[in-house]
Design a protein around this nucleic acid. Structure first.
Lengths: 209, 209
DNA sequence: GTCTATACAAAGATAGAC
DNA sequence: GTCTATCTTTGTATAGAC
């Protein structure tokens, strides 16, 4: 039996991670930690345990490599809520519970993600526009449901409040730990508590006169 | 009558801004816009309309200049709430109203401030520790009042929620405008509305069973 | 595909004239 | 105090051997 070369190459790639993959993962870690501007391509090569030239061989430039990392991270950051917000089969209350819970779980695994994303978008707003042109929130079923319940208040007020209560603690984490006098363990415990607290508060807000 | 030289120099400084001052203000604008790592000293010199060498003449290095700017901005960012939080003469409800209202007013004038501060602190947490060692929130009268009203819930939960609802919209502004479909004018109007909405919600949260 | 060595550009800092 | 010119370091990208 003849085994095609392409299959052999594929098999080889499944046992040991390819150099390309190593660089992409190293780039993700370094970019996330230091941000685009403060990251040196040498840092990425070193983190990957590979030579600097490989970086330019697989990806054309620092900027191209960053674009790839950024797209993956934005998918992760916005992907947590987009499907939920557009789901027409769940109630408003259930949506709120799921959005908060899913976000907290994901952010506990990726605490640096929000500040990274929001900061890089601010310095290059094209990043976001290129990713998914507008209307991500505006046209969602979630917004429709909010408008029904509270026609007098712009639905974005509720979206901002829920996301703010959920995401902000991770953005302000260093300050909270230092000025609030809490350690890592307590921080995690509080975020777990917020999975029930924030939805409870949010539902009350929406039902208020 | 004899006018001392020192007075003349002082008078001169009141009419035209000194080079040192020009550089500090230019540095503030450029650092706030691009962040520390992405800022080039040449950008600051150009923004100030002065030569690059002056920057090193007055301040020893880019890092020193940044430290000065950072300290001023942190004073502004934390100074808005610190006095209020430690004030023992105001009620809890009044404190909440004042914190939100003061923050919104200040942030409408300095929309880039939160992301700048939080991002730079994350990349160099010494910046915050050096500024004002811990306890900024932890030992405040505000926290004491919250603990009285709701002994079962960690007071930091309320602090985080109030600050999150107030500050987060400014941190996420580019995303909100693009994905939420709102322009600058509507953004400002909504932030004004939040000066009454957020306190109303926050008070209800604290009173909940 | 992977490496070493190096070209080239950008950026921080300084010397020295005025 | 302020400028022009320049040194030095750092960082991105490429050439060329294996």
């Amino acid at each position: 039996m003849i085994i095609p070369l392409s299959s052999m190459a594929k098999a080889k790639h499944t046992i040991s991670v390819s150099a390309e993959e190593k660089i992409r993962e190293a780039a993700r870690r370094v970019f996330m930690k230091k941000g685009y501007a403060a990251t040196r391509t040498r840092d990425i090569a070193e983190e990957a345990g590979l030579n600097l030239a490989l970086l330019n061989y697989y990806f054309r430039s620092k900027e191209k490599l960053f674009g790839i990392v950024m797209e993956e991270r934005m998918k992760q950051f916005f992907g947590v809520i987009t499907p939920l917000m557009y789901d027409t089969t769940t109630t408003l209350d259930r949506k709120i519970e799921m959005i908060v819970s899913n976000y907290v779980d994901m952010l506990l695994q990726n605490p640096d993600l929000p500040l990274f994303i929001l900061n890089e978008i601010r310095h290059n707003s094209d990043l976001f526009n290129r990713f998914q042109a507008g209307r991500l929130i505006h046209g969602s079923h979630f917004v429709t449901q909010l408008k029904e319940k509270q026609p007098g208040i712009h639905p974005l007020h509720f979206v901002v409040s829920i996301l703010g209560m959920t995401i902000f603690p991770f953005v302000a984490k260093p300050v909270l730990q230092s000025a609030g006098g809490i350690n890592q363990q307590l921080f995690v415990a509080m975020m777990e508590e917020r999975k029930t607290l924030v939805p409870k508060w949010a539902k009350a807000m929406i039902k208020m006169k």
